[in-house]
Every structure is written in structure tokens, then in C-alpha cells.
Simulated scan of single mutants.
Amino acid sequence: MDKELIAQLTQWHEDGEHQKIVDTLMEIPPVDRDYEGISSLARAYNNLGHYEEALEQFAMIAEQGQNDLLWYDHNSIQG
């Protein structure tokens, strides 16, 4: 993903605009979403209380997430 989009997603996360994150990332075809995009989408779903959707997204990047320190923070999903 380009740096501008990542910066925008980060700002929305900090502002609690999780639905904007979901809406924006859902416009990107699944095959074109990278690790960062999928992780952001999963975190936004989690913050919206959509735990099943969050888990589905995290499952797609589980192997890659093993080396990501934020992975363990993202996966403190309640549900």
C-alpha cells in the first residue's frame, strides 16, 4: 500500500474512525491487499466489535504475523 494511504489509515485509527478504515479497504480487491492492509482491516473490524470478520482477516496473515510485535497486540481480540 502506498505511504499516503497507510498514513490516512493510521490517522483514522487514532481518531476512532474505524468504519472509514473498513470502507476504504473494502474498496481494494482482496488479492491487492497486503499484510499492512489486512492487518488494518482486521484491527478496524475488532474495534467495531465485528470479531468474526476480524478473526477471518487475521487468519489470512497468521504466518506473516508471527514476526510482527504488533501481531500479539492485534490478536488480543475479545469475543
Rank of each mutant, 00 (worst) to 15 (best):
E27Y: 01
D32M: 11
E17S: 15
D15Q: 12
L41F: 05
W12N: 05
R33T: 04
K3F: 08
E56D: 15
N67M: 08
D73G: 13
Q11P: 00
Q57Y: 03
S40C: 14
L5D: 01
Y35H: 01
D2N: 15
L25Y: 04
Q66D: 03
S76R: 12
D34C: 07
S39T: 04
V31R: 05
I61S: 08
W12D: 00
E14F: 09
R33D: 01
H13L: 14
G16M: 04
P30M: 00
E52F: 07
E27W: 01
Q66I: 10
G49K: 04
W12H: 03
I6F: 08
A62N: 13
A44P: 14
A44Q: 02
E56Y: 10
R33Y: 04
I61C: 11
L25D: 02
P30A: 00
I61L: 10
G37A: 13
L25F: 06
A62S: 15
D23P: 00
M1N: 05
V22C: 02
E36W: 04
Q57I: 11
T10N: 14
H50R: 10
W71R: 02
E14D: 12
W71N: 08
L55Y: 10
Q78P: 00
V22I: 15
G79A: 01
L9Q: 00
D15E: 13
I21T: 03
Q19Y: 07
F58P: 02
Q64K: 15
S40D: 12
I28Q: 00
H50N: 11
A59L: 09
R33H: 07
D34K: 05
R43A: 14
P29Y: 03
N67V: 14
P30S: 00
D34W: 01
S76I: 08
A42G: 15
E27G: 05
G79H: 00
Q57W: 02
L70W: 14
L41G: 06
L9Y: 01
M26T: 12
L5S: 03
L69D: 01
Q8G: 04
A7I: 06
I61M: 09
Q57D: 03
Q66G: 13
Q66C: 05
D68N: 10
D32R: 07
N46P: 01
E53G: 13
E17C: 13
E17L: 15
M1E: 03
E36R: 09
L41Q: 01
W71C: 07
E52S: 09
I21P: 02
P30H: 00
H18E: 06
A44M: 05
F58C: 07
F58S: 01
D23E: 12
